[in-house]
Design a protein around this nucleic acid. Sequence first.
DNA 1: TATTGTTATACTCTATAACTATA
DNA 2: TATAGTTATAGAGTATAACAATA
Lengths: 167, 167
Amino acid sequence: MSRSRVTKPSLEPATGLVFLLTQVGAHAAARFAERLAPLKLAPPHAGILWGIKQADGLSQQALGEKLGMYPSRLVLILDELEQRGFVERRDRETDRRSYALHLTEAGAEILEQIGRITRENQEGICAALDEAERVQLKDLLSRIAAEQQLTLGVHPGYRKLGGAQPK
Amino acid sequence: MSRSRVTKPSLEPATGLVFLLTQVGAHAAARFAERLAPLKLAPPHAGILWGIKQADGLSQQALGEKLGMYPSRLVLILDELEQRGFVERRDRETDRRSYALHLTEAGAEILEQIGRITRENQEGICAALDEAERVQLKDLLSRIAAEQQLTLGVHPGYRKLGGAQPK
DNA sequence: TATTGTTATACTCTATAACTATA
DNA sequence: TATAGTTATAGAGTATAACAATA
């Protein structure tokens, strides 16, 4: 038995894999926000635009559900996006309480810019890894995500759960 | 050339590696906070206790620098930790403006519990991966962290930089 | 005058509840 | 009465500035 002892694993909270994962993840998110800033957009804006593109014509209720955002928060961001001409709230004949959300042409354009920024960011963050290693990393993370039952595409930045914050 | 075309890579922001990394990282952090909650502690508390243990007797100024926290924020959390008997602020003879921070016995004990929770959390988060894969993941993340010049042990949860938030 | 710790405050984000208009 | 969207508001968390004691 020449393996290092397993009975006393490192007590150090700041040296473990999960700490590293948290650190790198938050860094990547911060960098994305930075790169997005010139467009005068924050990550939630990007998520919303992307969500509408995926399911054009959906209601705010449905979008909030899909992204894990509170309706009240969604309203404010949509106001902004509508005012800037990226999103349209169209009346419905069937139910006049709800709107159908649509991307405008400008919205589609800004979404393409967001896509470009996303790729730039990925390139920046993953600069240390070659293509095969990126695939490997994505595979490992995907398996954690699947086992942890994370919903694909639900960004934690717009979550509504809220981690337990004592006191 | 049978490779898939490279000219039009996926525009989808929510399907990329970095999005996944962000998502899993935030999830891991949230789960850690949850597991910590029964101790009536939040992640920053844990970081501070750990920081003091690493450099017993340091000043608040130094600790804030080390963790990337604002002094004003540190004060409040230290007040709490001192009140609960985990930390001691000892006077210095050499410079009566600053205190020397020390872990009490209770502080060392709670830190061990934090260590246990940290390991439990790691076990929970990484359940999908075997030992070799965890090493592999840690290696990949470490290389990203090194290339991105992240400081080891500086948790993003108590950063003072703040990502650019437009509007 | 500069520095350490502290207090006060402003600002953003997040979450909840109350309200309106339709159904 | 229930639901979609909105408005109002409360609460954390974060960042900045002002302040007292000491150097």
